[in-house]
């Protein structure tokens, strides 16, 4: 049973990692707009810059 001496602190570390990852995501606005981000793919690209005219 002495393996729990290793596994329980390991579990704590994993918990800390999970909480850390979640906090990072919140701080970086990953949860700000859950509805409309995917719409971006369907939107038209901004008009490409006009090509320089070929000399005749």
């Amino acid at each position: 049973m002495s393996v729990s001496l290793l596994l329980i602190p390991l579990g704590l570390l994993l918990l800390a990692a999970a909480v850390g990852a979640f906090f990072w995501a919140v701080n970086n606005d990953q949860f700000e707009d859950l509805d409309h981000v995917a719409d971006g793919a369907a939107e038209d690209d901004p008009a490409p810059p006009a090509l320089p005219k070929e000399p005749p």
Binding site: A18, V19, F22, F23, V26, N27
Partner: peptide
């Protein structure tokens, strides 16, 4: 909103 989400996340995972 951010603070509230972080509190929820910590409480849920814990």
């Amino acid at each position: 909103r951010r603070r509230s989400l972080k509190r929820i996340g910590l409480a849920g995972l814990a």
